[in-house]
Design a protein around this nucleic acid. Structure first.
Length: 165
DNA sequence: TAACATTCCGCGC
DNA sequence: GCGCGGAATGTTA
């Protein structure tokens, strides 16, 4: 049971999914069209979700502008495995404008050799931007990969003033 | 078992 | 300093 709500931003319309636990998923704007954009009917929505959505909207726009999001809604990361949740937790500790390598994230999670697996966990991240998977680079500041498109990764990093080799 | 959003090392320019 | 090839590696479906 999940609710989908649209979030207009300067970069396009993101779509947020909310579960009972909080924000469960965030989708990048579709290049396609406005076909099945959620309408954001305000009437029957629980007050709790409306409040979360306000927080998400503010946080997303702050981050897209290169500023630090000071308050996030509760995140529902329960869809991930234990390893993935540990990785996502580590990602959330990376400040805006800072980066780590896949290897460094692996070390933080207590599995120094699992850099390859960290890449997998980043790709499985259901809440991009707010869980800053874009702040993870390959060794020696190389760009690395990004499932939602390298252009997004480049753009997000540029907003935070990060230079990539 | 077969993918991978990695990394490191050795080679030849 | 490139670039390329190959191996080791942990997690996932």
């Amino acid at each position: 049971m999940t609710v989908r709500l649209a979030i207009p931003t300067a970069e396009g319309v993101f779509i947020a999914h909310y579960s009972r636990q909080g924000l469960a998923r965030l989708e990048f704007p579709e290049t396609k069209s406005e076909v099945d954009l959620p309408k954001n009917e305000t009437a029957p929505l629980p007050a709790e979700i409306r409040r979360w959505h306000d927080l998400t909207t503010t946080a997303l726009n702050e981050t897209l502008a290169g500023r630090t999001a000071h308050e996030l809604p509760p995140l529902d990361l329960s869809s991930g495995t234990e390893f993935q949740q540990r990785v996502w937790g580590a990602l959330r500790r990376i400040a805006s404008g800072r980066t780590l390598s896949y290897g460094e994230v692996a070390a933080k999670v207590g599995k120094p050799r699992a850099m390859r697996a960290v890449g997998g966990a980043c790709g499985a991240n259901p809440i991009p931007v707010l869980v800053p998977c874009h702040r993870v680079l390959a060794a020696h500041q190389a760009l690395g990969g990004f499932s939602s498109g390298l252009d997004w990764k480049r753009k997000l990093l540029a907003r935070e003033g990060i230079a990539v080799h």
